[in-house]
């Protein structure tokens, strides 16, 4: 349910960056381990964007997979969830990817 609050933030930030110009496309980065459902953002977006500069804009969401480096053996490996241990058995890892929650860019309807 926090996705609605986040979508409001996305629309507010994007509209500020658009500075009065209509927006054709918004690109987000929502990592698969971020705790945010991209699907729920997609569901909320058209409604939140209505009657703003983002009305009718296309929403693109990049969803990086989880990726981590083991702090014991140094191996890098995919982490589809929070519970994936390194092959060496260690849970002591540095998360490299998958937690992103970013507004990457907007594309304006008209060329600059």
């Amino acid at each position: 349910m926090h996705e609605l609050a986040l979508t409001c933030q996305i629309v507010e930030t994007a509209a500020q960056a658009a500075a009065g110009r209509p927006v054709a496309r918004v690109t987000l980065v929502i990592g698969r381990l971020s705790g945010v459902m991209a699907e729920a953002i997609r569901f909320c977006f058209p409604e939140v964007a209505r009657k703003t500069l983002l009305d009718g804009a296309v929403l693109d969401i990049e969803e990086p997979d989880g990726w981590a480096r083991c702090n014991l053996c140094g191996v890098e490996f995919a982490t589809p969830d929070w519970l994936t241990a390194c092959r060496c058995g260690s849970y002591d890892v540095t998360r490299l990817r998958g937690e992103e929650l970013l507004i990457r860019s907007i594309e304006l309807t008209e060329a600059a």
Partner: peptide, 23 residues
């Protein structure tokens, strides 16, 4: 601050802001 770029049909504005930045 946004960076306008000329590629694509419309101008691209890079934002690279955290969604939770305001909170």
């Amino acid at each position: 601050h946004p960076h306008p770029h000329g590629h694509g049909p419309g101008a691209l504005v890079e934002i690279e802001a955290r969604i939770l930045a305001k909170n």
